[in-house]
């Protein structure tokens, strides 16, 4: 059997779409009689074409329009999220500011340990003096500040920057 000429998928799809003129259609039909590979490929593409042609308009539920109209003036949930996020962000910044202020005033420099004997627990329960727990106030406050900075960045991204960029993108796409 001689080598069969290739017929491109584009050409076959144009045939299925009815984009070929009558002469081209007849020529293709003649070619398909002897070109088994093209015939098989046409059938593969025709299966897809027939399936896609069967696409039909789906129907929404009965009270769809009513629900849309009811939602038109409902507050957008993202508004609440943004407000809460901004409050959380303000809280984190306030904590960072206060902690930094107290830290710079040297408030945590003098406290280096917690003496359990000074807690007022009656020593009838203990035979020996309770130990003093080493305590680095500066380190703990620094960790709190760092955690709040991380929290502030996350909140800023999720509730302010991301919604803002999404709105901008939507506006741009409309």
């Amino acid at each position: 059997m001689g080598k069969q000429p290739d017929i491109s998928d584009d050409y076959l799809l144009n045939y299925l779409d009815g984009s070929l003129n009558p002469e081209e259609q007849n020529a293709l039909k003649q070619t398909l009689i002897s070109n088994q590979r093209a015939k098989e490929r046409l059938e593969e593409l025709r299966t897809i074409h027939t399936f896609l042609k069967s696409v039909r308009i789906e129907e929404t539920s009965k009270n769809f329009t009513e629900r849309v109209i009811n939602r038109l003036h409902q507050p957008q949930s993202s508004g609440y999220l943004t407000r809460n996020g901004i409050l959380l962000l303000a809280g984190a910044l306030l904590t960072i500011g206060l902690a930094s202020l107290l830290l710079s005033s040297g408030m945590f420099d003098t406290v280096s340990s917690i003496n359990l004997n000074q807690l007022g627990i009656p020593n009838t329960y203990f035979e020996r003096n309770l130990p003093a727990i080493p305590f680095n106030g500066r380190l703990i406050v620094n960790v709190v500040i760092l955690a709040n900075i991380a929290l502030a960045f996350i909140v800023l991204d999720r509730t302010v920057l991301k919604p803002w960029f999404e709105r901008r993108r939507e506006m741009h796409q409309m």
């Binding site: 998928d9 799809l13 490929r41 593969e44 593409l45 299966t47 897809i48 074409h49 896609l52």
Partner: peptide, 9 residues
């Protein structure tokens, strides 16, 4: 459509 035909095959 080509990709769908290939995938179906």
């Amino acid at each position: 459509r080509q990709r769908l035909a290939d995938e179906l095959t």
